[in-house]
Amino acid sequence: MILNPAKRELLAAELLEAEGLSPEGRSLTKDAMRRLCRNKAAVVSIVVLVLLILVAFLGPYFIPHNYEDPDWAAFRAPPSWEDGHYFGTDPNGRDLLARVLYGTRVSLAVAFVATLVSVVIGVLYGAISGYFGGRLDSIMMRFVDIMYALPYILFVILLMVIFGRNVYLLFAAIGALEWLTMARIVRGQTLSLKHREFVEAARASGQKPLKIITKHIIPNLVGPVVIFAALTVPEIIATESFLSYLGFGVQEPLTSLGTLIAEGTDAMESMPWLLAFPAVFLVSLLLSLLFIGDGLRDAFDPKDR
């Protein structure tokens, strides 16, 4: 018996179903997230990072001391369970646990603010420069070159003079310096994207240039941008620590991980806990961010592994 065409189509449809093709599509981002979830190091890092964030932002409400008031009964106290100074106190009698938590909070906030600023400026600047090309591109990129050539620390000191009193503004400004590399990466990606056929197809469909940038170019930059941003966060935390160490960063009594480590190094021999606890926090924060960045890179570019 020969099957009729209708039965043959039914057969083909059954096969399609067997391939597990549900009507809901799997987007590339969902695919990437699925791959990320299979990466053990990245998953552990995400858990660590989430815990650190929760502890830093909720922790202070559950501990007996706050970060700025000295405990007159305990100066330079080593860690102990009895008096509630679980991480000990500093030379001014302030609770180290509270200060570490607060410092983590400041470091994280500063890093995310700076990264956000650098991503927004860098992506827009790079995409516009790369997409329009020609003379506009030359001018915009020469400006980036000039900015690169100026010494970083000099800039930070200048910004200090201007924004000295406000930590978040200072780091927004640092973000405004960090965007240079982001802009270059994005421009390079845009240059190759704009010759891809789907961008040409959008032009042929009569789409406006700015719409092409926002609808086609920028969504396709998600991979490299997310990866670079994930690697920028630890870089800025390290920069902040470095600046605070030099005395340019966060002002007393506010603190950050970098400041705490700077203070801790001074008293490393007499009060090792002052160095050890903030260092453990900083290292776990940086490592988890780096692993997440790596995991994202593998997830978005599975071919490059």
Binding site: I2, L11, L15, E19
Partner: peptide, 25 residues
């Protein structure tokens, strides 16, 4: 008609059966 099968989900019988004009039971 149709397209080559997905190698992960081959048909039970002849691989070409879903596209074959002469397919029988």
């Amino acid at each position: 008609p149709g397209r080559p099968p997905n190698l992960q989900h081959l048909p039970k019988g002849c691989n070409f059966s879903p596209r074959c004009p002469k397919v029988q039971d």
